[in-house]
């Protein structure tokens, strides 16, 4: 078995064009999935590709490189719209996991309970996919196609997460529900980004995770929030807004409970985000 360790993206993509490999960055999903078995494929370690680690702003918005860690997100000078993503970053596993695990890896792992997905959906993120000689961009909602399934084809990897520009005064938030503190798989979670305008929500994006095979935006709720007074966002949450969710019963909770809890999380989250938008403080 080989271990490939490129230092440039082009080299990584060239390696990816060959026989199948396991892409290794933070290792926080790769090694647990492997367990005690021998690695089935060569590793392609992309953690030395410096250009992939950057978080940077450009005319098209923010670009979060594929190997940027959760701790990088926490430490990055991101605007208030990213506060939900930052809050999610602090809730991922533990400090150890946040220091190693990458945001892009969280998307590629495609767990229904991936902490990063709702916050990035609320930010309207796209996923930049690279292969040797080509790049394409897909909306995050189309990137995660099911539990443990993504739109990646053989020879492709995520090169970055792209977040479109948000107004400077947009505010984001995130709420996670688990059965314990730290190191916990979410039972339900919610994230929102609200763009305030004259005391009202000009627009909002809202997403819920762990309540279906993939995290989902809630378009009907987003419509209901548009134009609502900031201090009354929580009241706009109605049961029918949760229709896109398809929660299941599992060891962490019943489907009924998940939907009930999601509605509560959404109302609390929107209350907080609305208050933060009103005060100009970050929640």
């Amino acid at each position: 078995m080989t271990y490939l360790r490129p230092t440039t993206l082009d080299d990584a993509l060239a390696a990816l064009a060959g026989p199948p490999v396991t892409i290794l960055a933070g290792g926080t999903d790769v090694f647990p999935a492997l367990g005690e078995r021998p690695a089935p494929r060569p590793y392609l370690d992309i953690s030395r590709v410096a250009e992939l680690r950057r978080i940077e702003e450009n005319a098209a918005g923010w670009r979060i490189g594929a190997t940027a860690t959760w701790t990088d997100i926490v430490n990055a000078p991101l605007p208030a719209a990213f506060d939900g993503l930052k809050a999610a970053a602090r809730e991922v596993g533990s400090v150890q996991i946040q220091n190693a695990g990458t945001v892009a890896g969280n998307l590629c792992n495609a767990s229904p309970a991936a902490d990063g997905v709702p916050a990035l959906l609320a930010l309207g993120a796209d996923v930049e996919i690279a292969r040797s000689g080509a790049r394409r961009t897909v909306p995050l909602a189309e990137f995660v196609t099911g539990p443990r399934r993504t739109a990646l084809s053989p020879g492709e990897m995520v090169s970055a997460i792209l977040v479109p520009p948000h107004p400077q005064h947009a505010v984001g938030g995130f709420a996670k529900l688990g059965a314990r503190r730290y190191l916990v798989i979410s039972i339900a979670m919610a994230s929102a980004v609200v763009v305030p305008e004259a005391g009202r929500a000009a627009s909002a994006r809202v997403a819920v995770g762990s309540c279906g095979p993939v995290a989902s935006r809630l378009p009907a709720l987003e419509d209901a929030l548009a134009g609502a007074p900031l201090e009354r966002l929580a009241e706009r949450v109605a049961p029918e807004h949760l229709a896109p969710l398809s929660a299941i019963d599992d060891v962490r909770g019943t489907a009924l409970y998940r939907l009930d809890a999601a509605a509560t999380l959404l109302a609390r989250l929107l209350g907080e985000v609305g208050r933060a938008a009103l005060s100009g403080d970050r929640p």
Partner: peptide, 15 residues
């Protein structure tokens, strides 16, 4: 690892 806490079981030695 370079001053930051990580789980050594999730790091490939070559990293």
């Amino acid at each position: 690892l370079d001053g930051a806490a990580v789980c050594a079981c999730l790091v490939a030695t070559r990293q």
